[in-house]
Design a protein around this nucleic acid. Structure first.
Lengths: 147, 147
DNA sequence: TTGAAAATGAAAGTCGATTTCATTTAGGCG
DNA sequence: CGCCTAAATGAAATCGACTTTCATTTTCAA
């Protein structure tokens, strides 16, 4: 990793090492705050802006990309081989993935037909995950019938 | 429209009337600032927060919905009969639409397979529109070859 | 070893979205 | 018609995530 960064003109530091490692240990779709919390557990002295800047760096060197679900929080998604879409639970904010090869094919064609040069496809399903659907049902059974 | 709002417990005011009308006169994907500018041309005295609140109201009563393209600006998209995706130009920010019936069918199935209750589908292609591709080419031909 | 370029941490700044609060207005009711 | 209460308004303050600034420290190639 040190070599990889050096070839791109960046230096390695203990903070960066820790931040990169933590990022890849956390799952997908990490927010700055989540990463900052994790990093802070390991080194109290690392600043928020350092975490933020390194997350940006991870994107710049092509290892992750920003995901914006419209809830005001930018998440950072590891770049993986396989393109995927997101199932975003509006209630608990959990994010699941699903494969989208077929869809991306259709979208690429759509773009081509319109002389639009696609850089990135975004396919999301917003709704309620199974857990939150069940919770909603429970609440209806137990709660008062207000509103 | 006044009746429509009354049945939902909202009152009609001159400001609201003007804001609603302006919103529907502007095309799709209107931002608060765009609407505020237009409304301001017609009535200098209307405040930003009133425009914002009425835009939210338009969403609440189901006539529009928020669109977030990840550029930090919330746009408001009139709810239309036909579901559509967005072609978003990363350079000039222009937004085009394209039909997505077929895709939505596939996505609904995907959601169903996973016991996910979909509320909303988001299908976007981010990239460069034809104009901006050409601009980029022009710049390469004329400009210096600085990295 | 050394010096320029890059990185860091704390704090301040940015900017769109949202809320607060004092005041005004709409519209149902007698 | 006037009255009254809930809703609406406008200005200003606040929020909160993101981004930048700046003084200082660190990396690493020569």
């Amino acid at each position: 990793m040190k070599e990889f960064l050096r070839t791109k003109g960046f230096k390695m530091t203990p903070q960066r090492e820790l931040i990169f490692r933590s990022f890849f240990e956390l799952g997908e779709h990490v927010s700055v705050d989540e990463l900052y919390d994790k990093v802070r557990d390991l080194d109290q002295s690392i600043g928020y802006s350092t975490v933020w800047r390194n997350l940006k760096l991870i994107c710049k060197v092509g290892l992750a990309e920003e995901v914006n679900l419209g809830d005001g929080i930018t998440r950072y998604d590891r770049v993986t081989k396989v393109p995927h879409g997101h199932l975003f639970c509006l209630s608990c904010k959990k994010l699941e993935e699903f494969p989208v090869e077929q869809l991306v094919g259709i979208l690429a064609q759509t773009a081509g037909d319109r002389d639009f040069s696609p850089e990135h496809f975004k396919i999301e399903i917003h709704g309620l995950c199974n857990d939150c659907q069940n919770k909603a049902i429970d609440e209806n059974n137990n709660g008062a019938d207000d509103e």
